[in-house]
Design a protein around this nucleic acid. Structure first.
Lengths: 234, 234
DNA sequence: TTTATGATTTAACCCCGGTTAAATCATAAG
DNA sequence: CTTATGATTTAACCGGGGTTAAATCATAAA
């Protein structure tokens, strides 16, 4: 039976197994907010449903069927997040909680409706990729703002939605997907970063910058390097 | 604990207790699609939660607390129905099923958002009254189309949403809230009715007409009677 | 007033998703 | 190679919402 609990476990396992080869009971317990015993029981249940391959004492991984379900749930979640923000005016640090509940009850028709209304988007409000209906996950960037060299121009592509408070802070800084930023300075020994956003200088905590994923700005960065190249050649 | 099941029972009891003084186990079993035994157990549970006054073998009625919850759930349901139809283009015979699932999970903030986006409406897409946030139920009409005298002009105010197929049929006939209709003829012995809708003659089954709630048309009906009065006076 | 019948409740059971406490396993350290 | 320790599983339990079958109640009819 595909209950909300089953969908939640599968979704969480999907996200965790990108980092670790096999997902352990304890990390699952921590992420679901339940006991290790509950997780063990659920993993057996998921294995029974052929959603997971589970080796006792050695963790679990999603089966192809489990992965399909995970992607469906994530698609629901991210479409909902974008819809709540775009169409209903939710602040971007509140959409996650609401989508968390809605994702398990909306119909395929509802999903199609909001996808259509949003123009079949590839990324949600935080820049997270929205799986397509046939289970393809759009590519996204993995570089973070805090590791950039001083002087580079970047475009914000994604902001981690793990922490709502951090999300609010980063949003107030103006670091939203699509925004162009130049790293101006880096305080030594893990101090704050100075960036230029929309013509303004801004000081950003390195922890926040770690959660901002960026891509090198084609327009801005090229013109910057052209300047340098030009300078050398002259 | 206010679970989806509790909310559903309370909502159904609310609707049933407008007709019968006390709601019986068997009617609840029929409406919830469960066994009488399950209903008995749930009624005890609801009594425990102070949502219902329950006398074994003699049925139940909502307590003031139960009524409050029922109205909140119905408000959720009807706002959702209108939103699905209005903002998302759902056909009016499909909104009920989707709202049935969503009504238990949306937050108060979500409710406020759609209420605002819809302009704080008093009636849903079928003409059913939407309880206000403080628990007031807007007044609605109780006269049905099939009992009208031949010749009268009426405005459709509400259509029963009990049966989706009937709803589709009635909608195809053009009998939607706000539409003005004149009853032209009535076939004897429960035969079909002939009505004028938007300048067109239409034949309607009496069973369908029983589910269409109307109000006498102020504009049209007055001018009709004026004509007659004028004729007599001349 | 008794009795038959249908409505209702009780009893025993099921699954789901959780809990705590005890047992067991994997593994790093001695 | 043994052992200590932390991770994991097992066992027994709980509440929520359902089931079927048996017992009990309410009531209309004889």
């Amino acid at each position: 039976m595909r209950t909300a609990a089953v969908e939640d476990y599968v979704k969480i396992i999907y996200k965790l197994q990108t980092q670790t080869e096999t997902v352990s009971t304890s990390t699952l317990a921590e992420r679901t907010g339940t006991s290790a015993a509950a997780v063990t029981k659920m993993l057996k249940h998921l294995a029974q449903l052929n959603l997971v391959s589970y080796t006792p004492y050695h963790g679990a991984r999603l089966s192809p069927m489990g992965e399909t379900i995970a992607l469906e749930v994530i698609r629901h979640h991210r479409l909902l997040e974008l819809y709540l923000a775009q169409a209903m005016g939710y602040p971007w640090d509140e959409v996650d909680a609401e989508a968390e509940k809605l994702e398990h009850v909306i119909s395929e028709e509802f999903e199609d409706s909001i996808a259509r209304l949003l123009g079949f988007p590839d990324f949600d409000i935080h820049g997270d990729p929205i799986p397509t209906r046939d289970g393809q996950m759009p590519k996204t960037v993995t570089e973070t703002l805090d590791t950039q060299a001083v002087g580079t121009w970047v475009v914000v592509r994604r902001v981690s939605d793990a922490d709502a408070a951090l999300l609010r802070y980063v949003g107030e800084c103006g670091l939203k997907p699509g925004v162009e930023v130049q790293l101006l300075a880096r305080e030594p020994f893990g101090g704050s970063l100075t960036v230029e956003i929309a013509g303004l200088e801004r000081r950003i905590s390195p922890q926040a910058a770690q959660n901002v994923f960026v891509e090198h700005s084609l327009s801005r960065d090229l013109s910057e390097s052209e300047k340098k190249v030009g300078g050398i050649l002259e």
